[in-house]
Design a protein around this nucleic acid. Sequence first.
DNA 1: AAGCTCGTCAACCGCTGTAGG
DNA 2: TCCTACAGCGGTTGACGAGCT
Length: 322
Amino acid sequence: MEGKKEEGIRKGPWKAEEDEVLLKHVKKCGPRDWSSIRSKGLLQRTGKSCRLRWVNKLRPNLKNGCKFSVEEERVVIELQAQFGNKWARIATYLPGRTDNDVKNFWSSRQKRLARILQTSAAAPATPSSKSHKTKREVSVFHELPTTMEATKFNCSSEGEPSSQPQPCLSPPPYFRNSEIIKMVPLPDIVKPKSLCFETNPVQHELPITDKDPWTDSNTAIPFLQNPQTQTDQIFSSETQEFLARFDPYFDVLGPLDALGLGNGGEPLVMEPPLFEPVGSCLSCEGERIDHTMTPDCVFDDFPTDMFDQIEPLPNTSGSGQH
DNA sequence: AAGCTCGTCAACCGCTGTAGG
DNA sequence: TCCTACAGCGGTTGACGAGCT
């Protein structure tokens, strides 16, 4: 398709004059016929580029240059868990935000997650060192609780979540209700298989296998082990204090109607079933679908290298396993 | 003060889906 | 049914600024 060399195509940052021309076109013709902009000689931009400029910068009511609010962050997190990386779809739930905004926001978080995982693995437990935290470190840790879910949870491994919410695309439980979040302070070593995403708390105490389902070795994944202990070991008291502030944050991660979304801002209109209990959800048509999210299904979709940088903790056998 | 690291943002690229001929 | 053009989407990249060492 792209056989012939495109001549006279301008790329790069848009000038104010170009924006003006584009706006005029949209006023006249509406947000369509993008390719005609070039064919008419109005701009030396591809239709694609024009559309993108309109959608991301020139459209009315965009929240350009303002950071994501806490509410917006929560919505993105929830919807990403439900829909996967369907940024355009997610953006429709966020008035004034574009798919590009959401995408950028999410990838920043992913980067931070990667860094957190690396640094927490590379520099564990140095409580006395570094009594001062840099601002940046603090902000990184600020993301910690919410980045735990940052992996894709589209549990169908054979591909793409469809445009409809799929049963398997339910949000990860610790972001669905506080009941599940309370699984965090488990007393013992928690291996992935015991991170059962069920509302039934009993599941959290499932027998733990000797094998790590990811590595097929006996190496447990420290980050997922007894998180309380890990937190104590890895983070300084300041950071812990900071993390402690997330308790109330988690508390509001209950059913959507409890989120108070839109407080003081534009109301965030949510489509039906964002916060369904694990085990069932509603299809787009409002039809309830029962399903069970198995741990395997969930962890299948963790990036395989997600924990590459994490070294196993010293053997905690005795205190840990049961 | 300079260099470095990181986060944010804008824009491009390639792929896919769809409508029309 | 096939082909083509276009629209839309998601991934990626590069520029830039802010903060830190």
